[in-house]
Amino acid sequence: MDRPLEPRDQSLSTSGARARRAVWSRQLRLWQLVLPATLFLVVYFVVPLGMLFYFSVRAPGVSGVTLVHFRKLLTDTFFLQTLGLSVRLSLEVTAVALVLGFPLAYLYTRLGPVWRLAILFVTLLPLLTSAVVRSFAWIVILGKHGLINTVFIGTGLTDGPVKLLFTLDGVRIALAQVQLPFMLLPLINAMEQLDPSLEHAAVSLGASQARAFFKVTVPLSAPGVVAGAILSFALTISAFITPVMVGGGSFNVMPTLIYQSAIVTLDWSTASTTALILLVVALAVVWGGMTLGRRFRYGPGSA
C-alpha cells in the first residue's frame, strides 16, 4: 500500500485482433463525444476571443502583425511581478482550500445523513451571496474594528488592531473561503467512490489511523484533489471583484490590470495581450496539474 499507484496499463487485458478492433471502434465513438463541446467552444469562445486577440498583434502605424505589445509587457518587471503574484496567490489559495477541505470531505463520508445535509448546505452558502455583497461581510470580519480584531484585542492576543482588510492576507482569506466549495464537493465525490474497507484493512493490518489516512485515502482521492484544485486555481486567477473589493487598490492582480486597460483606458491591445499571456501561463499550470493527477488514475494493476 505504500507504493504510489501505477499509471493505468496502456494495453487492455483482452487479447486477440477481434477484441482489439472492438476496443478501437469504441475509442472512435468515444472520440466523437468530445466534438459537440469542442465545436461549441470553438465557435462561441475561440472565434470571439480571436477577434479580441487580434488587437494584441496590431498597433497604430504598423501594417501587419506586430509583437510590440508582447515585447513591451514581457520586458516590464512590474507586469512580470504582477503575473507572478497572480500565479502564487492562486496556488496559495488552492492550497488553503485543500488543507481545510480535505478533512471536512473525509469527515463527511463518515457521518450520518443529518451532518451530511448540514455540511452540504453550509458548503453552498458562499456561492449564494454576490461577491460585492460578500465584501461587506469581509469588511465586518477583517476590518480595524472587525470581528477578528475584537477577538484578538479582547483576549489580549494583540495590543492594537491587526491590519487584514485591504492586504494580501485579507484577499487570501476571502478568496480561499469562496473557493472552498469548489474544492470540497469534488473531494466528497471522490471519497464517496472509494471503498472504505481499504482503509479499514490498512488499520487492521496494523497501520495507525493517520498512516492509513495518508497512505490510502489521500492518494486514492487524487482525482478529486485534481478536479478541485484545477477549479479553484482557475477561478482564483480570474477573480476580479474579490481582489478589488477586499484588496482595495493597494496592489494589482492580472484581472485588475486587464480591467484598467480594457475598460478604463480602452487600450484593447494591452488588455488582450495581458489576457493572452495570463491564459497561456495559467493553462500551463493547469496542464501540469492534470499530468500530475493522471498518474493517480484508477489502475486495475495496482489494486
Binding site: 467552444l41 469562445f45 470571439p48 482557475a234 489576457a275
Partner: peptide
C-alpha cells in the same frame, strides 16, 4: 491533454474579457 486543458480556459480567462469578445462577435 491539450484539449483537456483548453476546455478549462473559459474559467481561467477573467469573464470581462470573454464578455467583451463575445459582444464583438455577436
Amino acid at each position: 491533454e491539450a484539449l483537456n486543458a483548453f476546455l478549462m480556459s473559459p474559467l481561467i480567462l477573467p469573464s470581462l474579457v470573454y464578455g467583451l469578445a463575445a459582444l464583438m462577435f455577436v
